[in-house]
Simulated scan of single mutants.
Amino acid sequence: MSAVAEVVADLTAESDALDDLVAGLKPAQWATPTPAAGWTIAHQIGHLLWTDRVSHIAITDPDVGFQELMGQAMADPLGFVDKGAAAEAARPPAELLADWRETRAKLAGALCAVPAGTKLPWFGPPMSATSMATARMMETWAHGLDVADALGVHLEPTDRIRNVAHIGVRTRDFAYTVNGKQAPDEPFRYELKSPAGDDEWTWGPDDATNVVRGSAYDFCQLVTQRRHPADLDITTVGDDAAEWVTIAQCFAGPPGGGREPSTDK
């Protein structure tokens, strides 16, 4: 199986897990607020649908359709994405869910069909099909956490979150950039325990002076800003790593507001 096919398989499984959460909801439950300020469950699914659709356009119609979207984004850089989510959230839940299912299936097929070495246009730097699939996996997982929180349920983490951890590591310097800071010259070492606790996932040189350690599940919540750092099983060695934990962000856009610390301590 190719690298992109492996990530797409994880993306499909993660989407299906989130689908299972919302498929049986009554229409009124789609209006349940989630931890993302101003966003209901319908907004969460609407945003995933919107982004899956845009990703499909970037693959299948990069020169016209996607360029039109780029123009809209440049005209309203701060509100473009939220308006898309809101428009989708206003649809009847059954229609929204059916469209998401169809669109994500089309995207999965399109991603696997992208020729090796092709760079796909995006609102940031162009990316490979594997990188786009990884980004979709990360966002689907993160929105799934918000939906689960809204419903008061816990989703058991799986090894699929290694994709999320990977993008969290790869976007280290991005977090500094969007916060107006200079990224350190030296790479970090990351040592993360897999969800089952029987494996350690590592990135970076063994002799790095800055190290981030802890639960892979908590690390993924950190880089997607779904939990406050104080509530996570994450430790650091070195001043730079300690600072990075406070600004870590693997999703595009301006600096995220993060979440408040838990009051259940």
Rank of each mutant, 00 (worst) to 15 (best):
D206G: 04
A108T: 02
W141P: 00
C250G: 08
K181F: 10
A252E: 13
D207P: 07
D159Q: 09
V147M: 01
D76Y: 05
L155F: 09
A242H: 13
I57E: 06
W244T: 04
I234A: 02
G124L: 15
A150T: 00
G253Y: 09
T140K: 00
V169N: 01
A183C: 12
A133H: 04
H228S: 06
A58W: 02
C250S: 14
P255L: 08
G84F: 03
P126T: 10
W141R: 00
D198W: 05
H154Q: 15
N179Q: 13
H56N: 14
V211M: 02
G65V: 10
R91D: 07
R53A: 14
E191S: 13
A113G: 06
E243R: 12
L155C: 10
D207F: 05
H47F: 07
P27V: 05
R226K: 11
P115G: 08
D233H: 10
V245P: 02
D218Y: 01
L78K: 12
C250E: 03
S215C: 04
T263K: 12
P195S: 09
S55Y: 12
V4Y: 01
A105I: 10
A142Y: 02
V81F: 14
C112Y: 05
S55H: 05
T263N: 12
S128Q: 11
L21W: 00
L21T: 04
L120T: 06
W203R: 04
P77H: 09
R172E: 10
W100Y: 15
F174L: 14
A165N: 01
A242C: 09
T60H: 07
W203V: 10
L222H: 00
P229M: 06
P35V: 03
Y190A: 00
P195Y: 08
T209Q: 14
G197C: 05
A89S: 08
H43Q: 06
I247E: 04
A28H: 14
G253A: 14
L120G: 04
P254M: 09
G46W: 01
A87S: 14
G38N: 11
R227E: 02
C112T: 15
C112M: 15
G168D: 01
E156S: 14
R170Q: 15
T51D: 12
R172S: 07
V147L: 04
A98L: 11
V169F: 02
H228R: 02
D233F: 05
E260P: 07
K26C: 11
R101W: 06
W100F: 10
D19M: 09
T51C: 08
W122D: 12
R91M: 10
D82M: 11
D185T: 15
L120E: 10
R162L: 13
